[in-house]
Design a protein around this nucleic acid. Structure first.
Lengths: 227, 227
DNA sequence: TAGATTGTTAATCGATTAACAATC
DNA sequence: TAGATTGTTAATCGATTAACAATC
């Protein structure tokens, strides 16, 4: 969606260390997302004791093209064996390292409204390498949220807690009017990845990566295809 | 992501009536999503009593290119006035009609696990033209969910209720193993739009449109950009 | 009329796919 | 060796952007 002129950081060229793994080519955001899909598929295969997989098999499972699978992986190195395919466990490990999900990442959620509460009690974010253990709001109605008992802090403590707890990723579920202000504050406190559920574009410096999840848009655009 | 060979319906060429609005060109799914973005921006402008807007203004607000805005709209007709721009209220109405969100659409959620419950109690899906009033699960633990008191039906009643209540869109939050089976059943009962939160591709006939929301992938791929 | 902005065509850019020599 | 599959280049496809004549 964004182009070179896009002031927003979504899909912009990130200068992260991982970019350097295999030269200094720009790695498209779509490639990174698929890397994450490959990792999941590999985990499933591993669970089923499958030890090798070809690009064709992987592609079929995920509804992709096998050349695309090979090309995506080739951004980061040579992982396969001609004539055989890819070693499942080994590739999974390497991809997890490339994605940086072979360590725990501290996550905070900001905006404990309906959606925020829902995502907190969902709990799904605590699996697979993420620690969502901090929530913030302008008003603390409940001291903790969900079965995981995530503590809710007053937004005034934002910078302090983010720095102290080494929070690296923030989930934004604040009202649209507040989004930019909060984004500025978390970025100021050192956060460089934001998952934004707010239906509003936010401006961030180039080193910050923002992903948008827009549930309303997903629904509305589906409606177009009804009958 | 999908290409012509992709057996999955995501982004495939839909044969909906709306496609014919302005000839029989294939309308890219990305265009439909942006249409939905334009509609929202127009609603905001209307609320602020703004009566006209140019493609440049709209583009800037949404982080897009103005030519893209004009081209997207041109798929569906001529809505603008050279030298002036687009009439906000009028364009909003027309886009809502094109998207099919100028009527109420009945929505059911299937799979009342953690995520399903969270989305039900979120309630956000009940605004903007959708009526999410039915939930299904293999086991009915709670009779209703959330402040909206959405009733939970046993999955055995799926086809019957879908037909009786004219449910057109389904939100899938079932376990991965169940996804394909449930998809087959709702499609069999006449549903042609699925919002799939399950981390698993599903196969559907060409007239069915599936959108994927993959929260784990969004998080994992963000992790790549951390420092 | 002069100024602004549309609708649309042509140019550019980037991503996907096909093809195949190299390799196990 | 024969068969299979990789890594990679070249071809294709599609989407984005620039440019501008037409229009208000």
């Amino acid at each position: 969606m964004p182009g070179p002129k896009n002031p927003n950081s979504e899909d912009s060229t990130p200068e992260s260390e991982h970019q350097e793994l295999s030269g200094d080519r720009k790695i498209p955001a779509a490639v990174i997302k698929r890397l994450s899909l490959y990792t999941r598929a590999l985990q499933n295969l591993e669970r089923n004791k499958v030890e090798k997989v070809s690009s064709t098999e992987l592609a079929k499972e995920l509804g992709l093209n096998s050349a695309q699978v090979r090309k995506d992986l080739a951004y980061f190195g040579q992982f396969g064996v001609p004539g055989f395919g890819y070693p499942v466990g080994e590739l999974r490990k390497k991809l997890k390292h490339i994605l940086g999900t072979d360590r725990k990442i501290n996550v905070a959620l900001i905006g404990v409204g309906h959606l925020g509460k829902a995502l907190l009690s969902y709990g799904g974010f605590n699996r697979q390498g993420f620690r969502m253990r901090w929530a913030f709001d302008i008003e603390v109605r409940d001291k903790t949220i969900g079965a995981e008992k995530v503590p809710v802090y007053n937004i005034s403590e934002l910078e302090q807690v983010v720095r102290r707890e080494n929070i690296e990723l923030v989930i934004l579920t604040v009202p649209a009017e507040a989004a930019q202000g909060i984004a500025d504050r978390v970025v100021g406190a050192g956060v460089s990845a934001i998952l934004n559920f707010v239906p509003k574009r936010i401006q961030t410096p180039p080193h910050v990566k923002v992903h948008y999840v827009d549930l309303a848009i997903e629904m509305e655009s589906l409606s177009f295809y009804l009958r």
